[in-house]
Design a protein around this nucleic acid. Structure first.
Lengths: 340, 340
DNA sequence: AAAAGCAACCAAAGCGCTTTGAAATGTCTT
DNA sequence: AAGACATTTCAAAGCGCTTTGGTTGCTTTT
């Protein structure tokens, strides 16, 4: 059943039927009812390929997936995807994943834009002055960034969490508990989120006249193994910290393991606060010592990105703007006053 | 630059240019060279929307992503995706993810087929007599299953690993080492892979005149927590097993933790073999006791699925067939003879 | 009563490709 | 020399929508 058949059936022109279905005003309400009704009865669904050719709109959003034999997909990605799906599901919005050589994503971005394969794109894990952002800005396709990228001379849309504020708050809490030596086990500092977190810690320390000891800040990929190594390094070193801030729950697993191995008590000897992206399979309250966290659901962010992207596509949202979500600091058993 | 412009530029008809570019035989080789050359020089790329409307082919493959507030995406998915990307990247093959209500995927499958959104589809985590398979078979879209689904009265294409054989081999190894009481910590037995694994264990035991004690087989979602619980149940129960087979490395993490908590030595008191899907962030050789495994790369499977799907789409592969990969049993420190 | 304005509809022209059915050209038979 | 047969090219007809630029009747204004 296509438009032609449907319009013949109704003894109307394709124009009128098309307009009736797409909610144009210049069609009689009575006629519209007839059309909509008939379309439903006969299960008419406009052919997306045809519509796409005519309008250039695809109704899909894109994501360039960096791949390569030595490239692993970030576990955050699937959680974000769940959130995106939560929204997209209800709106028949599909996501096109375009795998790209991690070292040359530009070619792929150019291809999907040139081919008009998607109406909008999202970007994740941005770095300062991220080239993808400049590229998409230049290419003129609507996009939204999950996270932020400082150092551009134009505005762009993003949603991010207040990483700086979260770690500032967490550090302030530790300071109030009397901790003078606080360490940070951070993610890869080439990414903005990690930079912001470190800034938050530094600002809080500075507020109390302290500063971050260079040996007390470690940055690396956020794996359990790295968390373990970092914690051992900190706890076995001279001037061991009395409190540790950690950029991910997965790393915190390693920190807890290291503490156990070294017979260091949490929170007796060292307090621990980690950032929680809210993974369903790893909950801070289930740690052997319930873990204090800065918490922000990455899944919720995924849903929000889908929502805003959909709004952009349908023209409901036009202004370019950033959105920064506040982050809760959740106190649990892993924090305590400074020892002795 | 579109076809019309290009053909005018060459003083040829659109027909000829189109045919030259698409490798049709009825075009003079000299002409073809000119056309291909000019196309490259002017960076001509056929508009995919137009091609799609004309041919009905999209050049994309589809995956229906079950979502829902209480549905989590399987961590295996991203690893599979990496493999798919490895192949797809080099072939400009994109993947369309259509989020669907986990309880009603049929609607979504019907939509993507009716809309001709993709040329082919893949399915993962199949169950016996999986309805999605019957549905796609009925709808007539090419598809390939990652895994197997027994109980259909038609053939379908799949790639699967020899789960039965793998667990049969692993069990036989344990038997040869003298283990009389072997337990199985399995995944969700509604899925085929788990059923096949249990069958493998049973067959091996039967071969030695033994059978699987009902209390010695536990099935559940494959999380660390569940592995821990299952192991405690087994090790604290009467007739504790001297060997444990485990369906996933993540669960094995929990098993190791439980053993440590209970002061049970691996492999002194209990031997352990787990299935390894080859995740880059979790390697059996890095366990405190290097873990013996049945190993099969899920990433490689992803690449193979993409390859076969691409072959189906381009008509290179036409016969329907299953492909079963052998699984290596890799012996490491976590297995030993029966205690005393 | 003519001009103007409006509401409702339509024919036809895209969108940019592929494919059908024919035509033009040259080569081989007989 | 005429017909048969390849070979190579082409004009035009789709594919199924949206959108442009009308047209047709009515009602309202002057």
């Amino acid at each position: 059943m296509n438009l032609k058949q449907l319009s013949q059936m109704l003894a109307l022109s394709q124009t009128t039927v098309s307009r009736a279905l797409n909610g144009y005003p210049e069609v009689n309400e009575e006629t519209r009812r007839r059309v909509v009704d008939a379309a439903k009865r006969h299960g008419y669904r406009p052919n997306p390929s045809a519509r796409r050719l005519a309008t250039g709109k695809t109704g899909m959003i894109g994501y360039v997936l960096p791949t390569g034999t030595s490239v692993d997909i970030d576990p955050h990605f699937v959680e974000f995807l769940s959130g995106l799906g939560d929204y997209a599901r209800a709106h028949e919005l599909d996501l096109v994943l375009s795998p790209a050589d991690a070292d040359d994503q530009e070619t792929t971005y150019r291809r999907i834009v040139a081919n008009r394969q998607v109406d909008a794109v999202y970007i994740s894990s941005p770095r300062p002055a991220d080239r993808r952002i400049a590229l998409l800005h230049g290419l003129g396709i609507p996009f939204i960034v999950h996270g932020r990228s400082d150092g551009h001379d134009f505005d762009y849309s993003y949603i991010d969490i207040d990483n700086e504020g979260a770690f500032h708050e967490a550090t302030r809490l530790l300071l109030q508990l009397g901790h003078q030596r606080t360490a940070l086990i951070n993610g890869d500092t080439r990414e903005t989120f990690a930079i912001h977190r470190e800034q938050g810690v530094r600002r809080a320390l500075a507020g109390s006249g302290l500063s971050l000891d260079g040996r007390h800040v470690l940055s690396m990929a956020m794996t359990e193994e790295n968390g373990y190594r970092a914690a051992r390094r900190l706890l076995e070193g001279a001037d061991a910290p009395t409190a540790i801030l950690c950029s991910s729950l997965i790393m915190a697993l390693g920190v807890v393991r290291a503490a156990r191995d070294l017979n260091v008590s949490i929170p007796g000897d060292v307090s621990l606060i980690a950032h929680d992206d809210v993974f369903p399979w790893l909950r801070p309250e289930n740690f052997s010592v319930p873990l204090a966290t800065t918490r922000s659901s990455i899944r919720a962010a995924g849903a929000r990105v889908a929502e805003r992207l959909a709004a952009r596509i349908s023209g409901l949202e036009s202004e370019i703007r950033g959105e920064v979500w506040p982050v809760d600091v959740v106190v649990r058993g892993s924090v305590a006053g400074v020892p002795r």
